[in-house]
Structure formats: structure tokens, C-alpha cells
Design a protein around this nucleic acid. Structure first.
Lengths: 187, 187
DNA sequence: CGTTATGTTTACCGATCTGTACATAAACCC
DNA sequence: GGGTTTATGTACAGATCGGTAAACATAACG
């Protein structure tokens, strides 16, 4: 019951769910991938759904920490950081293991609005939006809430177009659009 | 083997898949919902995957026909029609049965890039993009391909934000952004 | 060494998954 | 009408689903 076994399970389950989907991944597959017996898994988690929720929690922490750090490393002004979001996306999209947004996929497989997995996915997007609001405020731009929602739309749309694969560089398409919106909010 | 039975199956299967997901919907559920026996289904389609592909084909026809018609009804200039896309989205989002984009969800459940379901979902997005390029050209705007990709990003992003439910009106957020992009492309 | 807690393995449960064999009913041809 | 094709319903096969009971190994503590 030492906690690192639990973390190892969650970390490896995250990779499998991300690459193969939630319904499509059975518990037997998790056993095969992690080398942890099914009984041990059910010592740590009551249900498969609890495992999924734990992987989403980890993903939320990892992704937001990565994005925020990346954005801060790429630009030192708030306005520049808003644009740097899309440079970070470009790096993400080019990774060979890129498979789209885990939270979009989770909410696609668990659609009921009050389902815990759907709620947790929506929370991730809410936290990102709130962070963008803060940066937009720091940049002194007009109507930061509105701008943040638009930048989120560009981010999510770029992810979808990256998965669908009909644009050479959806991240830069979105960045150019973001530039226009930021200019418009600079009165 | 009369064809209307087949169409009835596809039409009802579309509703169930859209509302409940693909992996989460078993053949027994389709039997219960459609009243068509499993044997008859497998007379019309070799596999469940073939049924899914047929529902996506129907959805593609229905959605694009609806969107194009709606956009033409709402505006008579090409430039106005590009903006009317988001008015149409607003209507769609407000429907009680709105559950996001079926193709985004399909590609989320069938992730391999060469999977027929993924390919068909990507085709739907490609057809939409090409249509937007045509309208942008008719409007005489700069770099119509680039603008069309950006309008697609706004459309897909608005759908995601509508599903996640943190904006009062994601369609209008996207419309305002689209207005700024169209202005920027009007040199 | 013996006892007790702790975690793992194995084997399995009932339910459900996609897909099919077979027997029956309906519709057609003559 | 009799005979033949065609569609349907039943019932089930084999695999896999999420989840569990009980035997087994391991280590800690006296």
C-alpha cells in the first residue's frame, strides 16, 4: 500500500487511457501494462471510474504546470505571454505522442453534464480560462474576461484542427488570430 | 431488405450514438431502440463499425445541408454569411438535444489516424473548411485559405466551450472574434 | 521460531460485448 | 393453392467487461 505504487498505476493508466480511450481500455489491459495485479488496483481504487478521475487529476496538474511554465519562459510581458500560449501549443502538437486533449476526449465519452468525469474535465477548462483572464488583466487589455474566452476558443479549436490534420500549422493559425484579437483589445 | 428499413436503422442509431457514445452503445441497445432484430441489422451491415460509418455519413449530409441553408437564409452577402455561421451555431447550441460535435466525439473514441471512422470525421471538417474558403473568396477577402482555417478554429473551439459550459454564449464570443478577423482581412 | 498483518496471485463471478446458427413467418412466383 | 425465396425472432456462442473471494507469499514484530 505504499503510495508510489498508486502513483505508478495512475501515471501508466494515464498513458494508456490517453492513447487508447477510456471505454476501449479494459482493466485487464491496465494489468498487462502496469504489471500490477487487478486486486491491488482495487485496493487503491474502488472502481475504474475512480482510476479515470485520478488520471484526469494528474493530467490537469501536469498540463497546466507545463503550459504556464512554458509561456513564462517564452515571453516576459503579459501581452507576449498571451501569444506564447500558441507557441507552446505548436510544440505540443508536434510531439509524436500527441493525441488531442484528454479532457475533450473524456467529456466526449462521458457526456452527462453532471457526470463526475465531465465535471472534472470542465473544471480543467475553467481553470485555464481564469488564468488567461489574470494574464489579460495584467496586460491591461479591454474586457479581459471576453478576451480570455476568445483565446480559449482559439486554443480548443486549434487542438481539434490539429487532431483532424487538415492544417499545416493550426497553432500558428490560432496565433495569428489571437494577435488580431489582442490588437483589437488594446484600444 | 427494402431500403427504408435500413435508413430507419441508421437514423435511429445516429440519435443513440450521438446521445450515448459509440463504445457505450451496444448492439442490444440498438435492437431495443429501433425494434429491428439483430439478425436484420447484420443483413444490412457487416459490423457495428459499418453502422457507425453510415450514421456519420448521414450526419455529415444533414449537418452541412442544415448549416449552409441556415447561413444563406440569415445573410445574403458572402461577408455576412461568414458571420452568420456563428448565429447558426448559437441556435444549435441552444437545442436541448445538443451534445457537441459528433465527429469530434467519433475521432476521440477512434483515435488511430488511419482508422476509417477517424478518416471520415476528418473528411467532414475538410469539406466544411473548403466551403468556408469558397465563401471567403466570394467575399473578396485576403488570404481566404488562411481565414477559412481560422474561422474553422473558432467554430470548433466554440463547440468545445459550449460542451464545457463555462461561457454564457460561446457562439457570440466566436462571432465577435470572427468579426475582428474578417475586418483584418478586408485590407 | 510463531503470529499477525499486508499485499499479491489465481481463479473465478455474472453481465455484457459483437456476431451467428437455426427455426419460423411472410411474401413472392407460377 | 404449393413451393421457394426472403426477412424475422430466438437463442446462443465465444470473448471480454468490471469486479471479487480465497489461497498464497512476504515481511514485521514479539
Amino acid at each position: 500500500m505504499r503510495p508510489n505504487k498508486r502513483d505508478e498505476l495512475v501515471s501508466k493508466a494515464l498513458d494508456v487511457f490517453y492513447a487508447n480511450g477510456f471505454h476501449a481500455t479494459g482493466m485487464d489491459k491496465l494489468v498487462a501494462v502496469t504489471g500490477i495485479s487487478k486486486t491491488s488496483m482495487y485496493k487503491h481504487f474502488r472502481t475504474k471510474e475512480d482510476i479515470i478521475l485520478a488520471t484526469l487529476e494528474l493530467r490537469d496538474e501536469n498540463f497546466r504546470a507545463w503550459l504556464y511554465r512554458q509561456v513564462e519562459a517564452l515571453a516576459d510581458t503579459p501581452k507576449g505571454q498571451l501569444l506564447a500560449i500558441y507557441d507552446a501549443l505548436e510544440d505540443w502538437f508536434s510531439l509524436p505522442e500527441f493525441r488531442g486533449c484528454m479532457f475533450i476526449k473524456a467529456s466526449a465519452e462521458f457526456q452527462e453534464l453532471d457526470h463526475p468525469i465531465h465535471v472534472q474535465s470542465a473544471d480543467h477548462k475553467r481553470l485555464l480560462t481564469e488564468h488567461f483572464v489574470d494574464v489579460a488583466k495584467a496586460a491591461g487589455l479591454n474586457d479581459p474576461e471576453n478576451l480570455a474566452r476568445q483565446l480559449m476558443i482559439l486554443k480548443e479549436g486549434a487542438i481539434i484542427m490539429a487532431v483532424m490534420g487538415h492544417s499545416e500549422n493550426p497553432a500558428m493559425d490560432a496565433k495569428a488570430a489571437a494577435q488580431a484579437l489582442i490588437d483589437a483589445a488594446s484600444h
